[in-house]
Design a protein around this nucleic acid. Structure first.
Lengths: 330, 330
DNA sequence: CCCTAGGATGTTTACGTAAACATAGCACCG
DNA sequence: CGGTGCTATGTTTACGTAAACATCCTAGGG
C-alpha cells in the first residue's frame, strides 16, 4: 500500500480510502490511485485487514461429508446465505466419524480464520468426545440435538415422519413398516419416533424398524428383508435414497409400486420426480435451514452473546405416485 | 498474548513458542504458560498469525452449486486432501451462472482470506465474462478447459465415453444413442465427442444427441423422446441421474432393461448399484481429482510459479446389470 | 479583507503475532 | 580456571491495514 501511495504521490491513508470506497476523495485523486494500483498490481492484504477489523467475514462449517443429500444442500444454502451477507464459508471436514476425528477438527478450529461456526455433525459424538466448542465463538448447531447450550436450527423431522405415516394410514394401510436411518443419527431417531407416534395414535401396532445407513444399497438390503413379510403393504423410508433401494428390492420381489406396495420417502431430493414411479416424499426446506443458521450466526456476531434456543423448520408432504390404497381394499 | 506473558511471568515470545509447540522451552515453563493461557482463556489470533506468516493455509473453491454429484464429490475430495496438508477450504459460491455472477465472485476473491484458488466452473463463462483470475494467485482449474494458461486437472471424459460406447458396440448394438449433458458444459461436450468417435471407429452412424441438463427429470423427458425411436436398443447417458430418468421413461414405454434396452451411465454415483437393474456406468475418480488439484496447488505455493499443463485422471468401466445384447440377436 | 467552516488529504498509531537477534546461564573441555 | 558452545529465555522489529487525529486549503459570509 505504501508503494502505491508513493507511486501515486499520495498518502497510504488515501490509498486505503480509495481501496475501501470511502467518500471524501476527489475523483481526480481516486483515478490517480487506481492507476497506481493497477500498474503495481496491488491487491489488498486480507490478513492485515482482518487483523485491523477484528473479523474475517468467514463462517466455518464442521461436517463429516458432503455425500449425504441433506449435508450438501444445507451447506450450499448456508454458503449462499452467507455470501449474501458478505461472509464466506470455510469447510472443516472431520475425516473420521470418531472421537479423535472430531477432536482434531475442533483443535484446528482454534487456528482457523473463522468468526463463527456452524456444526453439522451428530452432536452426541461431540459429547462422547468431551469436546467443547471454543468459548466465545458464536456457534449454531444444525439438524442435531445440542441440549440447551447452543443455538439450534432443526428440521421438524418428527412432524415430517408423522405426515408420511398418516398419509399411509389414511390410504387404509395397517401394516406400515419403517426403513430407518442409522441408530447413531438423531434425525433418524426422530423420524422413527414420529412414525411410531402416528401408528399408536391410529391404534396400529409398530413392528420393529429395519435399519439402513442412508445409502441406496442399504435400502436395497434392508428392503429385501422387509419384503419377506408378505403382509407388508406400505413402507415409510427415512430418506429417498433408501427408498430407491427399496424400489429395486420390490422389483426383484415382484411387488409393483404402488399397486402392491406403497412407499414414502424423506428429503425430496432432486431425483425423486424421476423415480419410477415418482416418489411421494417429505420435503425438507434446506434453504430455509441455511438461511436461519446464517441469520442466527449474524445475530450472535452482532450481539456478542450466545442465545440458546431451537428454531424449527417445518416439512411439507409431497404427493407423487408411489402410494395407493392397499391391494386388499382395492 | 502479552497478558498471558505477564500473567505467567515470561516474555510474549515464550508464549508464542509454547503456542506453536516449538522446542527449547523447559517443561516447567511450558506448564506455567499453558496454565496462564487457560486461566485467561487465551486463543491465538489467526489474522495476526496469517499476517505474520503471509499465508492463511486456506484454499478457495469457486463453484456454482454443490448439487451436481461431480461437484460435491470433487469438493469433498479437495477438502479432505487439503486438510491432510493442513489447509482449509473456503467456498466461493457463484450465485448465478451469469457473467455478473462470476465477476462478482472474482471480485470478492480479492478480499478473501485465501492463498490459492481451485476453479470448478465451466471456464467458457469466465472467458466470456472477460474475467481474469487475479495474477499471482496460484490457480488450478478442475474438469474444464482452460487453455494453456492454467494448471488443469481433468477427468478423461472422452475415454470414459469411448469405453461406454465400445462396450455397447461389443454387445452387438448398432443403434446407440446418446443422452448428453447441456451444450454449455465442456465435460458434456467431450463425452459427446468420445461417443461419436467410437461409433465412427466401428463404422456406425451417430444419430443426433438428445440434450438434458444433468437432472433426472431432464433424463426422463429426453429419454421419452428418444424411446419413440423403436429401433434404439442402447443409450449411453452422460450421467447417472439422467440414466435414472431414462429408466422411468423406459418403464413407461414398456421397454425392459436390459432385455429391450441397454443403458450405460457416467459418474458411478453412490446410488447406481441400487438402481433397478443396477447401472453399468463409468467410474470417475473424484478423490484422485481432488488429490491432484491440491497437490498442484501446493506445488505452486511452494515454487511460487504458475505451471500450465493438464493432468488427466483416467476413468474406469463398471459392469453391472443394465446392458445386454440387443433383442434381435438374442 | 479577514475569519470560519468544512472538505480533502496527511501523520501517527495499534491491531497480535513470530522471526531475527540478543543475552544470560550452565556444562564441559583443555 | 577461563574459554567455548549450547540451551533457555528476553527484546526488538515488521507484517499491511484503517481508525483517530492533525493539517492544509478553499469558499463563503460578515
Amino acid at each position: 500500500m505504501g508503494d502505491v501511495a508513493r507511486h501515486a504521490g499520495v498518502s497510504s491513508q488515501t490509498v486505503s480510502r480509495v481501496s475501501n470506497g470511502y467518500p471524501g476523495v476527489i475523483p481526480e485523486t481516486r483515478e490517480l490511485v487506481l492507476k497506481a494500483m493497477d500498474e503495481l498490481g496491488y491487491r489488498p492484504n486480507s490478513a492485515a485487514r482482518a487483523l485491523k477489523l477484528g473479523s474475517f467475514h468467514t463462517i466455518g462449517v464442521i461436517t463429516f461429508s458432503l455425500e449425504a443429500v441433506g449435508n450438501h444442500r444445507t451447506i450450499q444454502a448456508i454458503s449462499v446465505a452467507a455470501a449474501k451477507a458478505g461472509y464466506a464459508v470455510t469447510l472443516i471436514p472431520v475425516d473420521l466419524p470418531t472421537q479423535s476425528g472430531v477432536e482434531h477438527a475442533f483443535g484446528r478450529l482454534e487456528e482457523l480464520a473463522v468468526d463463527a461456526v456452524a456444526v453439522i455433525v451428530e452432536v452426541h459424538l461431540l459429547d462422547r468426545a468431551k469436546v467443547v466448542l471454543p468459548r466465545g465463538v458464536p456457534t449454531v448447531v444444525v439438524d442435531s440435538d445440542a441440549g440447551d447450550e447452543y443455538t439450534v436450527v432443526d428440521t421438524d423431522q418428527a412432524d415430517g415422519a408423522r405426515q408420511a405415516t398418516r398419509h399411509l394410514i389414511e390410504l387404509g394401510h395397517t401394516n406400515i413398516r419403517h426403513l430407518a436411518g442409522p441408530e447413531s443419527s438423531f434425525a433418524a431417531q426422530r423420524r422413527v419416533d414420529g412414525w411410531r407416534e402416528s401408528l399408536s395414535e391410529a391404534g396400529l401396532g409398530a413392528k420393529e424398524v429395519m435399519r439402513g445407513d442412508w445409502s441406496a444399497a442399504s435400502g436395497y438390503e434392508a428392503g429385501s428383508i422387509l419384503l419377506a413379510d408378505p403382509d407388508c403393504t406400505a413402507v415409510f423410508c427415512a430418506n429417498d435414497q433408501m427408498a430407491l433401494g427399496l424400489y429395486r428390492a420390490a422389483a426383484e420381489a415382484g411387488r409393483r409400486i404402488p399397486e402392491d406396495l406403497s412407499v414414502v420417502g424423506f428429503d425430496d431430493s432432486a431425483d425423486t420426480p424421476a423415480y419410477s414411479p415418482p416418489l411421494t416424499t417429505i420435503h425438507q426446506d434446506f434453504a430455509e435451514v441455511g438461511r436461519r443458521s446464517v441469520a442466527a450466526i449474524l445475530e450472535q456476531l452482532r450481539t456478542r452473546e450466545q442465545k440458546p434456543g431451537t428454531s424449527i423448520v417445518p416439512t411439507r408432504f409431497i404427493q407423487r405416485a408411489s402410494t395407493a390404497p392397499p391391494a386388499v381394499s382395492s
